[in-house]
Simulated assay, not measured.
Amino acid sequence: MATAALATVLTVGDAVPAMAAGAVPAVGTHQHQTLDKAALRAALSGLPDANVSGGLIRMTGRDGRWTDTAGPSVPSPDAHFRIGSITKLFTSTVVLQLAAEQRLSLDDTVQDLLPGLLPSSYRPVTVGQLLSHTSGLQIPLCARKDVPPREWVESALSCGEPTEPGKVTQYNGINYFIAGLIVEQVSGHSYGDEVRTRILRPLNLRDTSVPTLDDWSIPVPYTRGATVQPGSGSDELTDVSVQSPYAWAEGGMISNAPDLSRFLTALYQGRLLPPAQQETLFTLPTGVTGTRQFTYGGLERTVLPNGTTVWGKSGSYPGYTSGVFATRDLRRVLVYSLNPTGRTPELPYVMRIAEAAF
């Protein structure tokens, strides 16, 4: 599950103007032609420390390849970790595939696809608004833990009020819980089965999984998440590697760096989506406000301090912070994962990786 703070770790500055549909963004005038491996190595230097117990970086693409790890929490470059909200990219890809099959439209409403889920007083919310975080639905402060997805959504809607859909970008996990329910309703299969059939098996992503509600395990080898416990008054670390993956279609998946690199590369190459939906993948909503930008395919557009534009997704889970980002032309593809202890924000560590990578 991703908190708002952790979900913004690669977001820099104010929102930038929306691009024309299908346009290929510039990758920045300061980008190196070959990877700066010394800078990448330096980005992991000093780990472990009190704030991050370990990390890994995997770079692929036409500018070169590089992989390294640091710290005792990361046993190997292909270790598994909880990917948090990177899960959303798998969810949005399945939704776009269903749209390509004309089994739904991004203009379909939640009210039509899942009658009775949203209160009758709510304005119509479209599938496209869910994927781009412009639904206006309230932040799920009342969501119950460890309950089936529909119960989770119903509990999340039990407090707070929505705003008008299509006006403001507000990053919100409830959007993707509802998207997962739509996948199940339209396909007639479980969310996990659809992800496995449509993405994991075709791409041979053997180290990526969708845990069930009662499966708290993580495959070995895995990176070890350990955090201080809020409110405990103790600075001691507690191992949180084995924990409930209730975040489901919003943030519950497990993967590793090689699989995530393969997935993002295939997605950008158009191997998972036909041309119309591939264009949608990089299309930003127009006429919305907000400091963050998400496409109708769930990608976040970020402009780094050196002017480089990258697209991708960050994710977090207690003890884990990770991200997948790439230039649109796939010259550079970054996968990173850190094990923050929760003592201080990990933003400086992530920015150091981003600046070295791009």
Rank of each mutant, 00 (worst) to 15 (best):
A23G: 02
Y176H: 15
G290D: 09
A7E: 12
A326N: 03
T69G: 03
T208D: 06
M19T: 03
T69N: 02
V333M: 06
K37L: 05
V186R: 03
S135R: 07
Q170H: 13
K88V: 02
S85V: 04
V147C: 08
D235P: 00
F282V: 15
D112Q: 15
S190N: 08
T280R: 13
L267G: 06
P115E: 09
L56H: 02
D107P: 00
Q129T: 06
T344G: 00
N51D: 15
L118Y: 10
P148L: 12
T197N: 14
A20R: 15
D49F: 09
L272R: 06
R103L: 12
S232M: 10
T208A: 08
S158N: 09
V324W: 02
S241V: 01
P340C: 08
A18L: 03
L338C: 06
E164W: 01
F294K: 02
D215M: 02
Q277C: 05
R271C: 00
P202A: 11
T11K: 14
A99R: 12
E250S: 15
A20M: 07
L281M: 13
P221I: 01
R328F: 12
T134P: 02
S316E: 07
Y336V: 03
S217M: 00
V168S: 07
L264I: 15
G173H: 03
L260W: 05
D78G: 05
P211G: 10
N51S: 13
T283P: 04
N172I: 04
G297A: 11
G231H: 10
P348Q: 12
L157D: 04
T126C: 05
R150P: 01
A79T: 03
A257L: 12
K37R: 15
L200A: 08
V324G: 01
V335G: 02
R331W: 02
L273D: 06
